[in-house]
Design a protein around this nucleic acid. Structure first.
Lengths: 121, 121
DNA sequence: ATAGTAATAATAATCATTACTAATTAAAAA
DNA sequence: TTTTTAATTAGTAATGATTATTATTACTAT
């Protein structure tokens, strides 16, 4: 992956916030310094950065968000303001524990384990 | 919610499979008996059935899937064939445990707790 | 300096989903 | 039973997020 100015700025933007930004938000930010960037460039570079393991892709319902924190961690998603809060889920996922520890009224826990099923050796 | 023939068939289709079907797949199925149904009708009714708690909505990346099983449970998602397999995550989420119990090579665990953060009383 | 190739801007295309509208229909009221 | 009503529908247009295309531009190794 050779150097590109656009990608470098995109990386810096992702690293500058804890807000788990979307491609669209990042597009708005980068246009402040590079008004001619294309939204496609933002998407392409976010994908490349995620593929390289430099940033992390997190799926928030139907939209993709990005996170500079590539350590394994989970999220609380507020269904009022939409904010995503980083958490470390302990060995026991206990709704009640999360509720008091993070002062968060859990209404739904979504757990998806992604990998390869036994049909593929 | 008054009776509708279309909604009843949509409900039956969801209840007839363990494949966590998408709106589009259900649309293909219902057209076999009602060739004139509209895709919008499928979406609207799936939403109503989910709102009523008759079926469950599960988000699979950017697409919505539906499940007749409304009991709290989780899923294994195969990133080769895309299949979603029902599981009961035990009190301890241990990748290793899931791996041997379900013979599934876990590469990523996605946990999202949805609810209301402390900014909203 | 230049050839080769990756990256870009601009734009069109795609895919899932929602919104709109006039016509139809289930169910309640007369 | 007929009339009234409001929910539901088919058809279609619109939206929002993302990916693909294409001609042009810009890194970088030689």
């Amino acid at each position: 992956m050779r150097y590109s100015h656009q990608r470098e700025i995109i990386r810096e933007i992702v690293f500058s916030t804890n807000s788990h930004p979307t491609a669209d938000w990042i597009y708005g930010e980068i246009k402040k310094s590079l008004p001619n960037v294309s939204l496609g460039t933002v998407y392409r570079n976010l994908k490349q950065l995620a593929d390289e393991g430099i940033i992390r892709n997190i799926q928030d319902g139907p939209v993709a968000r990005y996170d500079w924190n590539i350590e394994p961690h989970d999220h609380l998603k507020c269904n009022v303001c939409g904010e995503m809060i980083d958490i470390q889920v302990p060995n026991e996922i206990i709704k009640d524990t999360v509720m008091e520890k993070y002062d968060f009224e859990v209404s739904d826990v979504e757990i998806t384990l992604v990998g390869k099923c036994n049909k593929h050796t």
